[in-house]
Design a protein around this nucleic acid. Structure first.
Lengths: 200, 200
DNA sequence: GTAATATTTGACTAAAAGTCAATGAATAAT
DNA sequence: ATTATTCATTGACTTTTAGTCAAATATTAC
């Protein structure tokens, strides 16, 4: 990595860090681009070098913590399906908690927009979640834990709705309940009955 | 209702109708207040007679269709719990579909904000949903359909997360699947297993 | 008939999103 | 080593739009 790339990466990270802190504290609508650049110690114009629109920073803010989950799950291919999913749910809610309600709120809005396809490499975050969940189910089908005729696509939709529902519910409650305890209840009550008909 | 009240009601309705159509078609962020007032045939200033902030119209847009559900459920007190809930889920998704993804997107953002308490009578929509669901469960407890020790509060949280998860999932899929068919699958797969341990 | 009250209006203000040409430092070419 | 090119950085500038407000107009109350 040469000096230019290093400088670019540093500036981008400064913006993401400043953005996360400010949005977390005050909310996306309550801050402006200059607040972010001031906190990051760069000029306003630099923001638009890295993000096409003000909103686009939100996806990048969430990318780092959520990206780590994907890595972890890659190293859990040998584990039981429900354990893997429970781990996913746990870690997802940890990220939700660390990002805070204000970030999740804005992020959900972006996620829900089918037209919102930011032109950076990764595209829409939720498609990423979808593919990850689907591959977990497919792993379980191919190793015989789930029946061969399991409707993976449908189950993925249903499980992802649990995931987002869980987050929505947590945000609505103003983060009052303990996320991990909540996740535990959720996985026990919801995940198992959904999967049961398809388990061998 | 005198002439003044009539005029006020008419203007408000014109704004809500115009707002719904525009947000549905173009999205909340892509239109401005003048687009709405132009379409409604009133002056820009009038918008702020009825809504404190641009966003506040979204809650009112969704209030009409969702309000009808509450009425219907009042007339279904004699029915079985699962039938009542399934009806609620069905009607909820019908409203979601009629409002369209763009309205739901913005509406979800408002719903997720614990600080967003518009100063009109009804307050936050989700609290309304919460109370409605909780009262359905309490009806079932008092008429013996559910066990006396059913944790109504927790179940309400879980069921509401199903409801919002279902909507989120539908929006993410760009409204591709048939909402009623989807609801049916949802209720069958999710609702019954959740309630089972508490049914007599 | 007159005073009080409420709705409607659109020009105006304030704020912030987003643009862009100039700058200068790093890299590549000769 | 010198020159040309590329690219991150800058901040003043433009444009858009949310939100205000005082005046005008219509309705109701006294």
């Amino acid at each position: 990595m040469n000096k230019r790339q290093l400088s670019a990466q540093t500036t981008r990270r400064k913006l993401i860090t400043a953005g996360l802190e400010l949005i977390k504290e005050k909310g996306f609508d309550a801050i402006n681009v200059e607040d972010i650049t001031r906190k990051a110690g760069v000029a306003k114009g630099s923001f638009y070098t890295y993000f096409k629109r003000k909103e686009d920073i939100v996806l990048d803010i969430s990318r780092t913590p959520f990206g780590e989950i994907a890595e972890e799950l890659q190293n859990m291919k040998k584990m039981e399906l429900i354990e893997r999913l429970t781990h996913y749910f746990h870690r997802f809610m940890e990220c939700v908690e660390s990002c805070g309600i204000n970030v999740c709120r804005q992020w959900t809005k972006d996620v829900l927009d089918p037209n919102n396809v930011p032109d950076n490499k990764d595209g829409q975050k939720w498609k990423y979640d979808f593919e990850m969940l689907k591959s977990i189910l497919e792993d379980a089908i191919s190793n015989g834990e789930l029946k061969k005729d399991t409707p993976a696509e449908l189950l993925t939709h249903i499980i992802i709705s649990e995931l987002y529902g869980m987050m929505t519910c947590w945000c609505m409650s103003d983060g009052k309940f303990e996320p991990l305890e909540w996740t535990h209840k959720f996985c026990k009550i919801q995940l198992r009955p959904i999967l049961k008909p398809y388990l061998h």
